[in-house]
Design a protein around this nucleic acid. Structure first.
Length: 309
DNA sequence: GCCCAGGTGAAGT
DNA sequence: ACTTCACATGGG
């Protein structure tokens, strides 16, 4: 594959040469929780910046005035530097089931999210529903984060009356000094204490999230699991969605259902058995396999899988 | 009212 | 090691 080609015209930046790429499915695949869609335009907050984007053909179009830093941010966030065609090819060669999932959603990417926001989001995800997770993350940002004033937004919002203001996700330090009861008010429920405790550990430097990249998968995972509210599944989500550990294979209720259905003849299996199978079947691409199977399960198999229990 | 939602920790076999 | 249960909150 070639390097992504970047072309600036007026108030748009067109990034091409990135196929396969599917913006909609990627942002709707349960990785990130701060994106909204309106008329094909997706708006989200990434590391203190607002990104507005839409897909035209195989290209990603960024809306707003061109800015090198913003372009670099988007390329990194959407992993546009990854040879995704090669990844899909290798997955399809593994077995006909994963091939089917990949062919159903070509261009489904793994994002590179900001680790602290990713960790908090998935602590909030435990025994929770996606719309409620989204709302809690947004309320936490609105309560503790900073309003983002972007040239981008000023230019695009000629008749804007203040409602569309977005907020950055708060730093660990800011959440470490929060009152737990105020975090509860954001809708975080029993997970509020976990969020605050994690913020304290990260803010103090006891846990260095970016530093985890230098550890091997097992050690990084153990380190994350020393946080209360972070078990195997949440740890794997953070490793996969923000730290580039593509061998991580988060197993939740959906993955349990779809793996049983496809690979274990519908019989009951433990997460340990599923995890071991995934390692052997998908190896270093287990995380990608997980994302295709998870998305396929939720979008195409929901009714069939619910009845299995 | 009741059940479930991208689980985890603690206590019990 | 494996099983059971509580945990806040809100939507179907």
């Amino acid at each position: 594959m070639g390097v992504p080609r970047i072309e600036t015209c007026r108030d748009e930046v067109i990034i091409s040469g990135i196929e396969p790429f599917d913006l909609k499915e990627t942002l709707d695949s349960g990785q990130a929780f701060r994106w909204n869609e309106e008329d094909g335009v997706f708006t989200g907050v990434v590391r203190r910046r607002i990104i507005r984007a839409r897909q035209v053909g195989d290209s990603l179009v960024l809306l707003g005035p061109a800015c090198d830093e913003g372009i670099r941010l988007a390329v990194d966030y959407f992993s546009l530097d990854v040879d995704h065609a090669d990844i899909e090819r290798r997955l399809c060669a593994m077995d006909p089931i994963i091939e089917c999932a990949v062919r159903s959603y070509p261009g489904l990417r793994l994002l590179r999210q900001e680790p602290w926001e990713c960790l908090t989001s998935f602590i909030l995800s435990a025994r929770n529903a996606i719309p409620l997770i989204r709302r809690a993350v947004e309320r936490i940002a609105r309560t503790y984060g900073d309003p983002i004033v972007e040239e981008d937004r000023v230019l695009g919002g000629a008749g804007e009356s203040g409602d569309g203001v977005r907020y950055s996700f708060p730093t660990p330090g800011r959440l470490a000094s929060a009152d737990v009861l105020d975090i509860v008010k954001c809708g975080a429920g029993f997970r509020s204490q976990y969020v605050k405790a994690a913020a304290e550990r990260v803010a103090s430097g006891d846990i260095d999230l970016d530093g985890l990249r230098r550890l091997d998968y097992e050690d990084a995972r153990d380190r994350l699991m020393s946080l209360r509210g972070v078990g195997e599944k949440v740890a794997d989500c953070v490793l996969l969605f923000s730290l580039g550990f593509y061998e991580a294979f988060p197993i939740d209720v959906w993955m349990t259902r779809v793996m049983r259905y496809f690979y274990f003849g519908g019989s009951k299996v433990s997460t340990a058995t599923i995890a071991q199978f995934a390692r052997e079947e998908f190896g270093g691409l287990a995380g990608y396999a997980q994302q295709y199977l998870f998305h396929y399960a939720r979008k195409k198999l929901a009714s069939e899988l619910r009845g299995l229990e």
